[in-house]
Design a protein around this nucleic acid. Structure first.
Length: 398
DNA sequence: AGCTGCGGGCCGC
DNA sequence: GCGGCCCGCAGCT
């Protein structure tokens, strides 16, 4: 009953199989395998039809963490926690920063917070923000299932994300903190004022939250695993022109239609480079600016040059269920438009660490061998590897 | 304020 | 019955 197409797909795509892990089980099975030969390292960006078995000691697993924005979904089964993907918040103008990065914000998990979030504007061009819904599971959001059984925590993912990766939870939190700090700091910031002016007419909440742009480099790190192999270099072509599209904050709709989703998924701008596979790396970073000179920053160890392909189709195919129905075109890219670099006071003590998305991948993330399917230890740090200290240093204002 | 988990309830298939 | 989703509540950070 619950097994069907999904399982079939899993047989072919379950990355877990690469680790010799048992993949014959299904989260709904009455009995799950206890003869686990290998416990997986926590996967921050699980994608496609994968299954993992974590140790019940794994903190991230215990918290059912995921760098994807997953919301709890009631499946009327208290034994199995189900979560569905909220997608990613993008700029309605599909703008790009000067360095070619895209805006991929993390959708707020809380419904109200998400609605509030969507009333805000693009941190980069001040355009409207749009929620790009996840339709990777037969047109529905990708779902993740968590089940605690004995000394293990079983995880199963159904569907392949058909959208870019949003910023991680840590990044989102850091951004919020920064924004708050900013607000407290420079209430009279001309730029903010300007934004407020722009927003007021729309009724949008003129918060500065939108200020620190979360720039996502369209790099691989932002691509779902299943996209990684479809990179195309044509991507770069997408970054041109200027802002077009909607007026600032015209209207933030909850959910970009699925058509757009597809468009995005095929947009070269979303591409990623095959060589990046740090799950931990996050595509979106709370930093300001479009201007690298403000944040020339050395700490970009994991950064890939934009050319490296930050663009490429993020996904060339539809989900397993194939929804080729979505085909709209989406205005592609423009160069950073509108707003000048943020007035961020570069954190004392160092160049803006968050700066140019180029580096942004998750700051303190140690390089990983692969997208995270390595099952090797070390991932247990998972979402935590970006320690708070780091952020505090980055955001001293807090 | 926002995240997370839980559970009631509705709806479509 | 199943799956998706909305909503409210409660605990936690």
């Amino acid at each position: 009953m619950l097994k069907g197409a999904d399982d079939v797909v899993m047989e072919h795509e379950d990355s877990a199989s690469r680790h010799g892990e048992m993949t014959s089980w299904d989260i709904n099975d009455i009995k799950l395998p206890q003869d686990v030969r290998q416990i997986d390292g926590f996967q921050e960006w699980p994608d496609s039809y994968v299954k993992h078995i974590y140790s019940s000691e794994d903190k991230n697993a215990q918290r059912h963490h995921s760098s994807w924005a997953m919301r709890n979904t009631n499946n009327h089964n208290s034994r199995i926690l189900k979560k569905s993907c909220l997608g990613v918040v993008i700029c309605g103008n599909n703008c790009s920063t000067l360095d070619g990065r895209k805006i991929y914000l993390r959708p707020a998990i809380c419904d109200k917070a998400r609605q509030k979030q969507q009333r805000k504007c693009c941190p980069n061009c001040n355009g409207p923000l749009r929620l790009l819904s996840c339709r990777g599971h037969g047109g529905y959001p990708v779902t993740n299932f968590w089940r605690h059984e004995g000394q293990f925590i079983y995880f199963q993912s159904k569907g392949a994300h058909d959208h870019p990766r949003p910023e991680t939870k840590l990044e989102a939190e850091a951004r919020r903190s920064t924004q708050k700090a900013q607000t407290a700091f420079s209430p009279s910031c001309p730029r903010l004022k300007r934004i407020q002016d722009l927003e007021s007419p729309t009724g949008a909440v003129p918060t500065q939250e939108a200020l620190p742009p979360l720039l996502s480099k369209p790099d691989t790190s932002s691509l779902p695993d299943n996209f990684r192999g479809h990179i195309s270099k044509s991507s770069q072509e997408s970054v041109l022109g200027s802002c077009s599209g909607w007026p600032p904050c015209s209207r933030a709709g909850e959910d970009v239609s699925s058509r757009e989703v597809l468009a995005w998924s095929r947009s070269p701008a979303l591409g990623s480079s095959p060589n990046i596979r740090r799950p931990g790396s996050s595509p979106a970073v709370p930093c300001t600016a479009p201007s690298p000179q403000h944040c020339a920053h050395p700490s970009t160890p994991h950064t890939l040059p934009v050319e490296e392909d930050g663009h490429g189709p993020f996904r060339n195919s539809t989900g397993p269920l194939g929804d080729g129905s979505r085909e709209d075109k989406y205005p592609l890219a423009y160069n950073s438009c509108c707003l000048p670099p943020l007035p961020y006071p570069a954190p004392q003590g160092g160049p803006c660490p968050m700066a140019s998305g180029a580096q942004h991948q998750q700051l303190s993330v140690p390089p990983r061998g692969s997208e995270g399917h390595d099952g090797e230890g070390g991932h247990h740090m998972g979402l935590n590897y970006c320690n708070n200290d780091m952020f505090f240093n980055l955001y001293p204002l807090r």
